[in-house]
Design a binder for these strands. Structure first.
Lengths: 88, 88, 88, 88
DNA sequence: CGGCGCTACGTCCGTC
DNA sequence: GACGGACGTAGCGCCG
């Protein structure tokens, strides 16, 4: 057929190509993501090499990401639970 | 062969059985471990059903497991980093 | 007070007991889990004592688990495709 | 003081700047990562808009990744066995 | 102590 | 829109 697409086979081929396109776009993005994650690890490694405590650095990043109000709420709840258990 | 073990093949069989035994013992134990982990999840789910905050409960368990001195040390370091950044 | 629970303090006490119960159940289960994990380590140690390579044994266990997971995954994917065809 | 850094306060300031640099590099990278993750979501959304089943697409991506991982794992295991034979 | 594997946590999705 | 389940990432601990 001249236009090469009006058959069922042609339609299937187009769908398969489209599917492949989506899959490969996702895989490409995930590859980029992996690169970024490795970069993060490298930054922490560099900081560690200068004597910083990585675990604490991660805590700092996590805490800065939390909204201040939410953070205080969380701390207050934890204190409540601990004091209910008689621990402080 | 009468004694059933003096050939290379016999030795191989015995070794394979022994290997299989180790592997299966480990797999059995890991299955038990998975059961326990599910039990833990159920306890948290039950607590959640009674209005407790699961995230905080997990924090409590984690904190109780930490040695008190280590806990304070960690908090002090975090405070130091945060105040160095002008956040508190 | 006769029923011992109608005050805010009473309510707090009851909640603390319940809280303590949850926490201790979790801690008990985690203790069991630790025991199991130690058992696993012992099995590997015993195998090592008989000349097996522990790293390889761990790989075998891991791959057998991956095989199971992948098999289930493939079956789930097949189900997805079949149901997609049945509904299309 | 001429060089402006030999005091304890000066040292603290320098450390704080360095600390801030690490933290901000990480935060910048995590921002990029979030962007990528949103891009992935958009691809899936677009595919969904063309009638593809997102859950199935995700399964395909995951299985292709597992296949790669399992292949590498199998190769590593083979290497282990081969080197074990070479050293035995 | 550095890498690796496992567990745990947060996030996203479908459901009710 | 809250809930629960599933997935992927991050954190932790063991092993070498």
């Amino acid at each position: 057929m001249a236009d090469g697409s009006a058959t069922i086979e042609g339609a299937t081929t187009i769908a398969a190509d489209r599917l492949r396109s989506f899959i490969e776009r996702v895989e490409r993005l995930e590859e980029e993501k992996t690169t970024i994650m490795n970069d993060v690890k490298e930054v922490y490694a560099e900081a560690k090499g200068e004597g910083y405590d990585v675990k604490t650095l991660r805590s700092v990043v996590r805490i800065r990401k939390m909204d201040r109000a939410e953070r205080q709420e969380q701390e207050a709840l934890l204190d409540l639970y601990l004091s209910a258990l008689g621990e402080g």
